[in-house]
Design a protein around this nucleic acid. Structure first.
Lengths: 306, 306
DNA sequence: TTGTATGCGTTATCAG
DNA sequence: CTGATAACGCATACAA
């Protein structure tokens, strides 16, 4: 019975019986109970992806690509969203393994390996991305120095000296590091910090109105969109610099420069690293750091070099 | 033992034993196996949300809101993504219930109630949204006539006669209906159909270059962004009309009008309808239809009325 | 090759 | 109030 339906008879089942069983199964509309199977086999063929904000299109793109890739490998994706809330994240970190997952991919809010180990079962295959955690080897992120370096170089080339910063929460590594690295290269005349969402960008721009910075630097695309959305008059607009892509930037009537990460590659590496652990293969000895590339729009390109 | 840990002793457990059990549980790092619990209780406290495209920010926003709402009600969200692929959708429709979910919220590709019933267990609490399926009562969508009506009215008011259409796949109700309703109000001089993604919008605009329509109407925001992204020169730009919000539309140097749906309300209603079924309450007798509202940018507002 | 019995970790039930 | 035991649906080891 089980032998034929689960396919795993080891070839040790006669054609006659197989047909009879299959026929009856179909007639009765039999559906294997995968949760019973999981209990028995200790495997769920499900992988969880825990994101800080699924409303952010950047994470949406990651989710889409990871799902496709896992699906090709026979795994179902279980997507969870913490909304950048440490409590919800902790809850999911503890809950997801209990619900039965074979592995976890996460862009964590948590800062330490210890915190992760406390919540997660010791042996759970784990991949961290976007936000490296010290001590976690299975990790994919973008080289922060290179990422910010090309952005700062591009800004310097057109004579930017004074910048205003719009930053996501400092307790999130990516935002904090970007903020710090920019501060080393430019004179930061103003700074606005808040949730990494459009609304924060809007508020920041209003605060910066009278300051006339050479450029406004945002630690992610969502903040950048908020800033741009708040701009009303466009005479002598500031330069907008941000991380990751801004939609329709070519047509926007202000100079924009973005340091964009390689989303498809990052997604692919995440899945690769997780599958390696799931199949018992050895992962890489060190975290993977990808390269970013700089993109500018026409308005930016027509700026006169300093 | 179980009595204390599962909390469900019915108050029939002494303080002394409770403490002793809790102490030992903590010492051993005990974690309840929720998949065993699900098997026994026949309940998972998990709800699946099956989306056609999680990379589309509109669905991302829905996902985020639905997750928050379900979380407040003690359910975990399991998000799945079909990528607008009928086969993947069918697979998930069959798979998710087997994996153990208490209910399902879906924006389906499928067109018929029969097709759904074939894949889904009969008794599974189900909510359909965005894309109504005939015969499914638990359904939340936006009134198509009203939605398109306000868009067409706004366009007519500025003298639009000839439009070019950029449409998502015709087998998806929302795209087909929007396309048809627009065609009844305007002279459609060109039409480009393809996957509801930015790339399709870009290709469409290139095809429309020489036609000089009064407006380009897109059946969703993603297509609209693609069209705008493809526009290079902005002398005498066409009007862009689309469904749902386009980011930073106020600053874009061309007239834009959007008929936007109420995403928060739609998410809330989805959860409401599902919870009603989960708790055995009677749902509404008829599908719910929400109202859309029209938004224009400054460039559109400065157009002279016809 | 096929039938049968046991256990996966819980919870519910039934004695004690 | 508490301890033991069966059953959830499946896969596997073992017996036939």
């Amino acid at each position: 019975m089980s032998r034929v339906l689960s396919g795993a008879g080891g070839g040790k089942v006669s054609e006659a019986v197989r047909r009879r069983v299959e026929e009856v199964a179909r007639r009765l509309g039999y559906r294997p109970n995968l949760i019973a199977r999981s209990l028995r086999k200790g495997k769920t063929n499900t992988v969880a992806l825990l994101l800080p904000d699924i409303a952010n299109p950047w994470f949406g793109a990651i989710a889409s690509l990871v799902e496709q890739s896992l699906h090709r490998h026979g795994y179902t994706l279980m997507l969870a969203n913490s909304g950048e809330d440490p409590d919800r994240e902790a809850e999911y970190l503890a809950l997801l393994p209990q619900k039965g997952i074979d592995g976890l991919i996460v862009a964590p809010l948590l800062r330490s390996r210890k915190a992760l180990d406390q919540l997660l079962p010791e042996e759970l295959p784990l991949v961290v991305f976007d936000r490296p955690v010290p001590g976690v080897k299975a990790c994919v992120s973008t080289d922060p120095a290179q990422q910010t370096g090309i952005l700062a170089d591009t800004l310097e080339r057109v004579g930017v000296k004074k910048v205003a910063m719009v930053s996501g929460p400092a307790h999130i590594v990516t935002h904090r590091v970007r903020d710090e690295l920019i501060a080393r290269r430019f004179n930061v005349i103003a700074r606005h910090e808040g949730p990494a969402q459009q609304e924060t960008g809007r508020q920041a721009f209003i605060r910066f109105l009278s300051l006339r910075p050479d450029a406004i630097v945002c630690t992610n695309n969502f903040l950048g969109e908020g800033v741009i959305d708040a701009i009303e008059k466009i005479e002598d607009p500031p330069i907008i610099a941000c991380y990751d892509q801004i939609a329709m930037m070519h047509l926007l009537p202000l100079p924009i420069v973005c340091s964009v990460q390689d989303v498809p590659l990052m997604s692919e590496k995440c899945v690769e690293l997780l599958l390696a652990q799931l199949e018992g293969r050895p992962g890489p000895a060190e975290p993977i750091e990808l390269q970013a590339r700089c993109v500018t729009n026409q308005r930016f390109q027509s700026l006169s070099p300093a």
